[in-house]
Every structure is written in C-alpha cells, then in structure tokens.
Design a protein around this nucleic acid. Sequence first.
DNA 1: TTATTTATTAAACATTTGTTTAGTTTTAAA
DNA 2: TTTAAAACTAAACAAATGTTTAATAAATAA
Lengths: 207, 207
Amino acid sequence: MTKRETIIVSAIKLFSSKGFEGTSVRDIAADAGVNVAMINYYFGSKEKLFESVVEYKASFLRGVFSELVNNKKLSHIEKIDFMIDQLIERKFSDAKFSHLLHRELSLELRPQLRNAISGILLKNIDPVKTIIKDGIKTGVFQPVDIELTLTTVIGTIHYLLTSDTICQKILGKKEGFSPFQNKQLKKRLGEHTKKLMRSYLLKNKKH
Amino acid sequence: MTKRETIIVSAIKLFSSKGFEGTSVRDIAADAGVNVAMINYYFGSKEKLFESVVEYKASFLRGVFSELVNNKKLSHIEKIDFMIDQLIERKFSDAKFSHLLHRELSLELRPQLRNAISGILLKNIDPVKTIIKDGIKTGVFQPVDIELTLTTVIGTIHYLLTSDTICQKILGKKEGFSPFQNKQLKKRLGEHTKKLMRSYLLKNKKH
DNA sequence: TTATTTATTAAACATTTGTTTAGTTTTAAA
DNA sequence: TTTAAAACTAAACAAATGTTTAATAAATAA
C-alpha cells in the first residue's frame, strides 16, 4: 500500500465515523502515521482528499447489474432476487461508508461532490429499472410504479441499517444488539424483501 | 418569540443545512441577530444548544398513532393508509430536520444524544406494530414480518427524500426538479406505498 | 428611590483548524 | 558520482473555533 493509499484508508475510516468536518487533518495524519503536511502534499486540500476518497471507493465498484439484463437463464423474479441479495451484501459489508455518502448528500455543502456521490450510490439504477420494465412488458409483473418500487427495495435495506440505535428500536432488541455484520439479520432482511417483491410484482403467485 | 427561541430557530435552520460541526456559533448568532455570548449564556455550550434543539422539536411532536389502535371506525388496512399519509405528511413538511437527526444518528459522536433522537424518530413505532399485529391476529392480514414491513414503509418514504440529487436520479428527472414540497410527488408516493401495503398485507385483495 | 438580579455587549482567551514554508533526506536519473 | 527531482519533516502561519471575562444596560424587587 502506497503512502497515498494509507492516507485515503485512514480518511475513509475517520470520515465514516466522525464525519468530514468532525475529522481534522491531524487526526487523519496521526491514524495514517504520517506527517500532517503530507496530506496537502499529496491531495492539495482536505476537501480534495475527500474527493479522492470518493474516487478511490468508486474504482472498486463494478456495475454488477448491467449483464443481468440480458441474462436468459434467470427468470424476471429471479433477477430481482439476485439484485436484492447483491444490495444487501453490499450494504452490510460497507454500511459506515454508505452513511458517510448519505450524510454528505443531505448537506447543503460541496455541491460538486454531491453529483459524484449520487452517481456512485445509484450506479446500477438503469439496469434494474430495465429488468422491472421487461417484466411488466412480458406480462409477468404487475404494472407497478417502477421508480418507487426500486425506492422501496433500496429504502428498506438502507433504513434498517441507518444506525444501531434505530435498528434496535425497530426490532425491539436490547442495547447490545449490533446489526452490522449480523448474519441472521441479513438473512431475515433478504427473505422479507424478496417475499415483498414477489407479492407485489408477480401476477401469478404460484411460483 | 423569546430570544432563546430565536436562537433555537436559527440553530435548527443552520444545523439542518450545514450540519452540527459545519455550523459555527457565530453563524447562529448572526442569523438570530444576537450577540455570540448569548448562546453560552442561555444554553451553556454549543452541544447543549443542540440538545435544546432536539427537545424543542420533540415538544411539538404529538403521538398521533396511539389513539389509532383502538379506533373502531377504521378497518385495519384503513389504519395503515392513515399511518402512511401521516408519515409522508410529516416527512415532506420537515425533511431537512429529519436529515439532521439521521446524520447525527449515523455518526459515532455524542452517544447520549443518539438515544433521544431515535426516540423522537420512532415515537410511534409501538402503536403501528400493534395495528399490524391485530390485523394478523384477526386474519385480515398475511403473517408478515411486522418489524421489517414497518421498515419498508418508513424506508421508502425516507429514502425518496434523502436528497434532491438522489430523488432526481431515481425518478429520472432533470436537475431543476425539487422533490421537497412537491405535491404531485407526495401523491405518487402515497399511492405507491398504500398499493404496496395492500398487496402485501391483505389476504383478500377485493377491497 | 435604591439595591439587586437579569440581560446584553465588545473584547479577549486559549485552542484548534487547514495550510504553507523552508529546510532536509531520500530516490532516481544523467 | 554528481545532479535534480521527489518525498518528507518540524515549525510557523493566519484564520476560525467555542468559550469566558469584565463592564454596562435594563428590568425587577425592596
């Protein structure tokens, strides 16, 4: 790992848990074991470091859903199942960073970053829209509101993992319960979301 | 409005749009037309001002759903409809403040505030759980995962209004489109969510 | 009225902030 | 080996931060 990457990794960690303005460049430098000046040397400014963080994460993000559209082996609803599993997997494996992006989006600061961020978050939106649209066109799916159906899937997964406190309160769990990386919860969420979509999308429920 | 309230109102506005650490006490004082020292005079510290903001907002929040449980005039699904309308109404009328609370929840700072906040956000959760539970017990509703069904409703409404950029990208709208206080979108979201819940909850769909 | 508490002010305070400078070491090319 | 570019450091910089002080004005009580 290059020193540049070391800084980015520390920035991801600290921005994720304490927010952008809640993290000082000295915090980052200390965590990375690097002189403070190196941050401006490599990135120019704290804000540009943030941009680099976003770019860095985006570079690991493949568009997994584009090949799904023309997949002939899977039925329409199986494609939806696959998508749900992927979204849950991704959210559970990287919830803290997802929070960082959503926090940034809801702020009225750094507008140029917000476009890049929403691009990352919704990278796969068009293929998924197409899958639902195809299902409707071929008569397998009900004529639903495509965009809002998608919002439901993403929103359900996202909201459950908003924070441990929220998750505990919703599920009626004790304070110790930690939702992130909880395999049982992951399974439960998957089952619920798939069942919900089958019930809502499918015309013929006998499948 | 007392001077204390003036400060709180300015704090709500600025914390909502720029975040807690992104807002300085001088920003707040200037917006409220008040000397900087008055903030510490009235509230003790910036952090305690934040607590007062949360308390202030909570004091306006009535528990609208508790009386709904024992309402005999409405059917089970009509109660769900009512709840959805209420949640949408509330979210659209106060989206920015809701964002502030969710940002704070997802940060690993100020843990004592997070409990108060999740309490506010999920004030009505128990009555709503009861309504779904009753529907299942009387055989009108399918035996669904109650907590996650609730998460779906809240999550759908919440996610659509995460930010204008996200909403634009999901709906395929131009940059100018502003979702907040958009009556058409409000109606569309209500129809989608109610249709979804009827499809998922009701055993006998002929209603 | 006078006395006393409350409200308000401008200025100062001590830290912390992101960033830059000027110098040094390391690396790599000529 | 010499030279020049790149990497790195400790220190300084200016600005902004939350908070406190000391003095004054206003409101209230005796």
